[in-house]
Design a protein around this nucleic acid. Structure first.
Lengths: 221, 221
DNA sequence: TTGTCAATTGTCAGTGGCTGTCACTAGCCT
DNA sequence: AGGCTAGTGACAGCCACTGACAATTGACAA
């Protein structure tokens, strides 16, 4: 037998169908979640709206939670890509800061083929305000931190397990990002510009404290 | 029957019975969780071991998760109490640092009537290594942060909603605490002294960066 | 075109967390 | 002693999630 050879220009009917089903599940799920609430929406409802069986839903998403983060995941991946592409001479804090802002700036192109930005923002808000999803969000964030810490350590030529500074800086940075998300959800300006501005505003308060002569051998132990 | 000894607060048979049931549920649950794993333990099992119905379990704890955090909650409350008692002239970072260490130092007296410290430490480790519980732990932590931020703001005479610094400092501090917990779980020294030492070691790396002229821009008082 | 293979899906049955309801028991109070 | 009520057990049911197996359908070769 021969390999399918999935060329970039030859998606194949099967693949396209799968993708369409998946996208439909995400769109419908987020639409239902944001209008009826997360707990107020059953998996059966989502599956029925897309006209697939509940079992099929769980073949695409390992849990109800996962579909809620499908779009968020894309944005996070965009952030990681941006961070990996920052010039190496840039300090770790500046690099993270630029990457977050870049991810916000590009969020349109990143997700527009799946859902409109407006739906994503409503989803983001729903996540922040649904305890079960907030918990999942925080766990996902803490996994992200490990990824980012390793990236940062590599940029700085440090051993992430020997030097605590990469993890600590990332933890502090992520903490500020988390607060930003929460304040955005509580505040009145629930727009993309709103969260971008808030991001800058909050980071401005931590940045100077963390970015001071990072590379210099520390003056004291 | 003999009269019940009129203690400082007459507990009453009903109350004592309830407390005994609750304590037994916690002890048995943590023992089962730490030996068979969290997901490997059903609520029915816990209930059966304590000889109550599953329904009764859910009358004491709103979820299976909640029982896993019963002891952790006591330690957290001890931390908050300690923080509230710190001298007001102390900087916020030092106050938080002292309170965490004090909570660790007093953990024995705090929880010993319910479970041995050794079981608590195993539970702590289990929480860190069980995704579902880690998520819940992080959400609980983020709720704690709000409490702490308000405490810190009050100490400093700031408005927590107008000045972002309390929330940011607490977020950064909590981020470091979280990393500490994770590193403790991954490390070899899974003792109380181990996590205490790690706490100091990690905090030493953030403290200087955050506590510098905090009060300067706004002369308080 | 057609037959075969393998991927995808639907159906069904079952587990476990969690909730509402209702009758019953046991501590509490007068 | 007897009424009140908190606490409980038993039962039924919802929903997220999983394993097993059969039916369907796209992919590919003959």
């Amino acid at each position: 037998m021969t390999l399918p050879a999935p060329g970039p220009s030859a998606p194949g009917l099967r693949e396209r169908k799968k993708r369409r089903t998946r996208d439909a599940l995400v769109r419908v799920a987020l639409e239902l979640f944001t209008t009826q609430g997360y707990e107020g929406t059953t998996v059966d409802e989502i599956a029925e709206a897309v006209e697939v069986s509940q079992r099929t839903f769980f073949r695409y998403f390992s849990s109800k939670e996962e579909v809620a983060f499908a779009v968020q995941r894309m944005v996070e991946e965009e952030f990681v890509r941006a961070l990996a592409a920052r010039p190496p001479e840039e300090g770790p804090f500046d690099a993270m800061r630029h990457s977050v802002l870049a991810a916000w700036d590009r969020v349109g192109e990143t997700i527009d083929e799946i859902v409109p930005v407006e739906l994503y923002l409503r989803t983001f808000f729903m996540i922040e305000s649904t305890p079960a999803l907030l918990a999942a969000h925080l766990r996902r964030s803490s996994e992200m931190e490990e990824t980012i810490a390793r990236l940062v350590a590599r940029r700085e030529g440090l051993d992430v397990d020997a030097d605590p500074r990469p993890r600590i800086a990332v933890a502090a940075f992520s903490g500020v990002m988390r607060v930003t998300g929460q304040m955005w959800g509580k505040g009145p300006d629930r727009t993309l510009e709103g969260i971008r501005a808030l991001t800058e505003w909050y980071l401005d308060h931590l940045g100077p404290a963390l970015s001071l002569h990072w590379r210099e051998p520390r003056a004291h132990g």
